[in-house]
C-alpha cells in the first residue's frame, strides 16, 4: 500500500509526516525491529528500512558504522524482508531504501515480488536515476509498489520534471549537497528545492539529509510534506549504554520530532 496514505492523513491533520530511517540488522536483527517499532510508537508515520550494503557511497560516518555493524552481524536479504514484514505489521507504511546493486543481483522482478509479499510499500533508490531505472520502474508498476527517486539542489528543472514523472508515493528532496548525517543547520536552499519540485508534481515532497531535532523538524515542516530523519536515530542507538536505553532514546527522539512536525 502506498505511503501516500500516510502523507494524506498528515495533511488532513494540517501537519507534515514524520519519516524515520533505520538499517535492518542494526544494532542486531531483533534490535532493529524493536527500534523501528519504538520509532512508530514515538510517532513516525512512515518507516524506511535500510538495506545494508558494503559500499554506501551516499552515506556519512554514522550510517556507515551502523551498516557495517549490520553486515558484520551477518544480515541477509531474507532478514531485511522479515524486518519489513515485522514493521509493516504495525500498520505503518514501510519502504526499503537501498543502493541498486543488491536489487539488481537478487533479480529486480523477484525483489519486487518478495518486497510486496513482505508487506513493503516500495523502494527509495539513492543511486538510481530514471534513465537507468527502467527495469525497476516496470517491476514496481507490475507489483503496485512505490517508486521514490531523489531530487537534489543541483537538479535542473528539466531533471526534476523527469524524476517526478516516474515517482510514486512521494518525492525525496535531498536538502543539502552532501552525504547523510545530522547537521546543526538546515540548508536554506531546501525550501526553494521543495518549491521548485512542487511546480512539477502533486505528489508529497519529503525532505531528508540533516534533520536531527524537534526544532529542525518544525522548521522543515513549514515548507515540506514530510520530514525524513535517519542518522539522528542511529546516533541514539550507538550512544546508548544498553539496548533498553537505546530504545527509550529512539522513542523519545521520535516523540520530539513528532511534536516538531505538529508545531
Amino acid at each position: 500500500m502506498s505511503v501516500q496514505r500516510a502523507y494524506d492523513r498528515a495533511k488532513a491533520e494540517n501537519r507534515a509526516a514524520l519519516v524515520g530511517y533505520l538499517p535492518a540488522g542494526f544494532p542486531s536483527y531483533e534490535g532493529a525491529v524493536k527500534a523501528a517499532k519504538a520509532m512508530v510508537e514515538g510517532g513516525c508515520d512512515v518507516i524506511e528500512i535500510g538495506l545494508p550494503y558494503t559500499d554506501p557511497l551516499m552515506d556519512g560516518p554514522t550510517i556507515q558504522d551502523a551498516v557495517h555493524q549490520a553486515l558484520t552481524g551477518g544480515i541477509r536479504l531474507a532478514d531485511v524482508f522479515r524486518t519489513v514484514e515485522a514493521v509493516a505489521a504495525t500498520g505503518v507504511p514501510t519502504l526499503v531504501m537501498t543502493y541498486y546493486n543488491p536489487v539488481d543481483r537478487y533479480g529486480v522482478d523477484r525483489f519486487a515480488r518478495d518486497l510486496l509479499s513482505a508487506g513493503g510499500a516500495g523502494l527509495i533508490t539513492p543511486d538510481l536515476t530514471p534513465e537507468e531505472g527502467g527495469e525497476w520502474l516496470a517491476a514496481a508498476d507490475a507489483y503496485d509498489l512505490d517508486k521514490v527517486f531523489l531530487v537534489a539542489l543541483s537538479s535542473t528543472d528539466e531533471r526534476i520534471e523527469k524524476i517526478t514523472n516516474v515517482c510514486r508515493g512521494f518525492v525525496y528532496a535531498a536538502s543539502l549537497m552532501g552525504v547523510t548525517g545530522a547537521r546543526t543547520v538546515v540548508d536554506t536552499g531546501a525550501a526553494h528545492l521543495v518549491e521548485r519540485t512542487r511546480k512539477f508534481t502533486s505528489l508529497p515532497v519529503g525532505l531528508g539529509l540533516g534533520v536531527g531535532n524537534g526544532a529542525q523538524a518544525a522548521e522543515v515542516a513549514q515548507f515540506a510534506d514530510g520530514v525524513i530523519v535517519g542518522s539522528a536515530f542511529i546516533r541514539r542507538l550507538l550512544d546508548a549504554p544498553s539496548e533498553a536505553e537505546g530504545l527509550t532514546a529512539v522513542r523519545e527522539l521520535a516523540a520530539e520530532l513528532a511534536e516538531g512536525v505538529r508545531r
Binding site: 557511497l57 536515476t129 534513465e131 537507468e132 531523489l150 537538479s155 531533471r159 524524476i163
Partner: peptide, 20 residues
Amino acid sequence: ESGHFGLFGGRFAPEALMAA
C-alpha cells in the same frame, strides 16, 4: 549516447551528481 558499452557502463550515480 547514454554512455553504455553494450550492456555495460551507464550512469548509476546519485542525482546530486547528475548536473556535474
